[in-house]
Nucleic acid binder design. Sequence first.
DNA 1: GTCTATACATTGATAGAC
DNA 2: GTCTATCAATGTATAGAC
Lengths: 192, 192
Amino acid sequence: MSSRDQLTGAMAELLWERGYAATSPRDVMARAGVGQGSMYHHFGGKHELAVEALSSVVGKVTGESSVLEGEGSPLERIKRYLTAPRPGTRGCRVGRMTQDPQVVADAELISIVASAFDTVLDRWERAITAAIEAGELPDTVVPADLARTLAAIIQGGYVLARAKGEQEPMDAAIRGAVAMLDAAHASVRDHD
Amino acid sequence: MSSRDQLTGAMAELLWERGYAATSPRDVMARAGVGQGSMYHHFGGKHELAVEALSSVVGKVTGESSVLEGEGSPLERIKRYLTAPRPGTRGCRVGRMTQDPQVVADAELISIVASAFDTVLDRWERAITAAIEAGELPDTVVPADLARTLAAIIQGGYVLARAKGEQEPMDAAIRGAVAMLDAAHASVRDHD
DNA sequence: GTCTATACATTGATAGAC
DNA sequence: GTCTATCAATGTATAGAC
C-alpha cells in the first residue's frame, strides 16, 4: 500500500477515534508509519489530508447499497436498518465530527458531513414514504420529519452510549424506536 | 462577582462553544478578564476548573424542576418537553462533551456527564410509566427503552442541526417524534 | 489574591539533504 | 518520494513580585 493510502487510512481512523482537532499530523504519520516529509509531499497539510480521509469514509458509507433499499416490506427494511449492529461507544464516524468546533468552522469539512447526512436522510425518506403507501405507517406521518427522527435516534444513541461508556443505551433507544413504529403500524391496521 | 465565579462562568461558556480540548486556560482567563496567577490560585489547572464549571452547569440543568414533572397529563407533559425551544446549532451543553476524547478519557468529567443523563432519563422513565398507566401509550412500551429513544431524539437532533448549520432538522426530528407518540396513543384508544 | 515573566512540551508547517 | 532538522505559535503550568 502506498504512503499516500497509509496516510489517508491512518487519518480516517484517528478522525473516528479522536476527532479532527485532537489529531495532530505527528499522530497520523506515526500510525501510518511514514516520515514528515512524506506527508507534506502528498498533502498540503492536516486540513487537506482530513478532507481526503473524510471524503473517503463518507464515500464508502454512502456508496454501498443500504439495507433501507434492500429486500422486504418498507417497514421491515426500516426496522432491519435500525437494528443493524452499531458499536455505540465508538461513536459515529460522521456524526462525531459535528461536535468538533474546528470541523464546524471549516466550510469544506462540514460540507462533507452535511452531504453525507443528506444522502442518508434521503434514503430514510424514501423508505418511509413507501411504508406509508404500503399502509404500514399512518398517512399522518410526514416522511421528511420521521426521517430526521429516526436518524436522530441513531445519532443520539451514540451520545447516550458514550456518556455511559456502555452499548446498552444505544440498544435500548433502538428497541424503543421499533416499539413506537410497531404501535404506529397497529394504529393503521385498526382503521382498516 | 468574584474572580473565581468569573472563571467558572467563562469556562462553562467555552465548554459549550468549543468543548474541553479546544479550550485553553488562556482563552478562559481572557474571557473572565483575569490574569494567569488568579486562575492558578483558585484552581489546580484546566481540569479542576472544568470539573467545577461542568458540575455547576449540570447542577443548574438538573436542579430546576422539569416540564416532565409539571402540569397536565403525562403524554401532554412529554410532548411539551419535547417541543420546548432548543437552539439546535449550538449543541447540547452536556451531550457535546461525549464526543470530546479528552472528556471521555477523564473519569471525573465523564462521570458528571453520565450522572446528568441518569437524572434526565429517570424523569423520562417516570413520565412514560405514568402515560402507560393513564392509557395514553400502549403497555407494550418499555419505559426504560422509550426514555432512551426520546432522549436520543433530542441529542441526535443537535447533531443533525449542527451538520446542516440550521435549526430545521432539530424541529423536524421533534415533530416526527410527536407524530409517532400520537400514532401510538391512537393505537391504544382503538383497543378500548 | 492578583499580576507579569518565564519555562517547557506540543502543534502544524518549512527547509533542505538524499 | 522520503528523510531529518528546525521553526514560530500555542498550550499548560510554575516562579516570584506586589
